[in-house]
Simulated assay, not measured.
Amino acid sequence: MRNLLTFFLKHQFFSLFIILEVISFAMLSNSYSYQRMLRFHAVSDVSGAVYEAFHDITGYFHLKEENRQLLAENGRLNNMLLASMLAPDSSFRQTKDSSYLYIPATVIRNTVNHTNNFIMLDKGSKQGIQKEMGVISDKGIAGIIIGVSPHFSIAMSLLNMHARISARIKKNDQLVNVIWNKDYGMDGEVVDIPAHIQLQKGDTIVTSGNSFIFPAGLNIGVVSQFEKSKNNSLNKAKLQFSTDFNSLHYVYIIKNLDKQEKIKLLEEAANE
């Protein structure tokens, strides 16, 4: 040990040089490691952002496909439920909605800012679509089919001056009609309300089931403002539609399976 100390004292400048070199090398190594770590983190951040963007994009397309599958599955489940109600000689034959088929469809064009608005769908005559079939969203009714080609169909939106829906006031079953008043923007109008009937804000209006287009009880909208007549004539009310036409993407087209039988029966009764 004494000899080692003597050696260092004798060669102190050389020893100091060696010690400084070792320290410098250690510091330089740490510096490179730190720089490499910075570069690694920088690359990781960039690649992570790219993968995240890629995931978001692919997730969006997967979501669209999942929505289509979900729509088809909902339609299938509805039809299975209806099929169970349509068993031969079953007392459920007259159950509400038991004669309607739900066909899922995707909106490919939809207008909301015209006097007469329309909805184009990706289902046509090859999928069994015909004129005067109802169109509904997951929130309520949306329109009525008025034109059909082999692969596409056009529906008259509720936001159309020619639309007129037979309806009921849910709380008392009173018959009324629903139209679209262009002065109300995206809202509708309940008309033909008997003078003795008063509606409250939030009252629900549903389909009457009197037409061959929609089953009874489907949501049309809720009352937002009631207008009582000043001369004891029919009242009216402003209606907020249940369907959001600004975000209409997936719908069901409703087919009345008993329509022709009902029409034939009515024609026979009219000719008697």
Rank of each mutant, 00 (worst) to 15 (best):
S247A: 12
G202P: 10
I179V: 14
Y184C: 03
K228A: 06
V190S: 07
G217D: 06
I169E: 04
I220N: 11
G209E: 07
G185S: 10
Y184P: 02
L234C: 00
Y252K: 08
G147F: 04
D192G: 00
V206Y: 01
F226R: 07
A216N: 11
G147A: 11
S242Y: 02
N232H: 10
D183H: 07
S208D: 08
L218P: 00
S247K: 10
I193N: 09
Y252V: 00
P215L: 09
K171P: 01
F241R: 06
G221H: 05
N181P: 09
R164P: 00
I154K: 15
S166L: 13
S157A: 10
F152V: 06
A167E: 12
I179E: 13
K182R: 15
S153V: 06
I165V: 15
M161V: 10
K230M: 11
K236N: 14
I179C: 03
T243R: 02
G221Y: 11
L218V: 05
Q240K: 15
S224A: 11
T243M: 06
V178A: 09
S149Q: 08
A167P: 07
H249P: 00
S208R: 05
K201M: 08
V148G: 05
K238S: 09
S229F: 12
Y252C: 01
K171Y: 02
H162D: 14
M156R: 15
E189P: 00
G147T: 03
N231V: 10
S224T: 15
I213P: 11
G147P: 00
Q225L: 12
E189G: 01
I220R: 12
T207Q: 06
I179F: 02
E227H: 14
H196D: 13
V222T: 15
V190K: 06
F212W: 07
N177C: 02
F214V: 06
N172C: 08
Y250D: 01
N181F: 02
D203F: 01
R168E: 15
S247L: 07
L218K: 07
Q200L: 08
G147V: 00
V206G: 02
Q198C: 00
L158N: 08
Y184K: 14
F226K: 08
G188C: 10
D192V: 02
P150Y: 03
N210I: 10
M156C: 05
A167M: 09
N177T: 05
A216L: 09
N160H: 15
K238H: 12
L199W: 04
I254W: 05
K236C: 01
K171M: 05
K238I: 06
R164S: 14
P194D: 12
V148K: 09
V223F: 02
L199G: 04
M186G: 05
P150D: 13
I165Q: 11
G209Q: 10
I197Q: 11
N246L: 13
F241P: 01
Y250R: 00
S247P: 00
S247C: 03
N210K: 14
I205Q: 01
R164L: 14
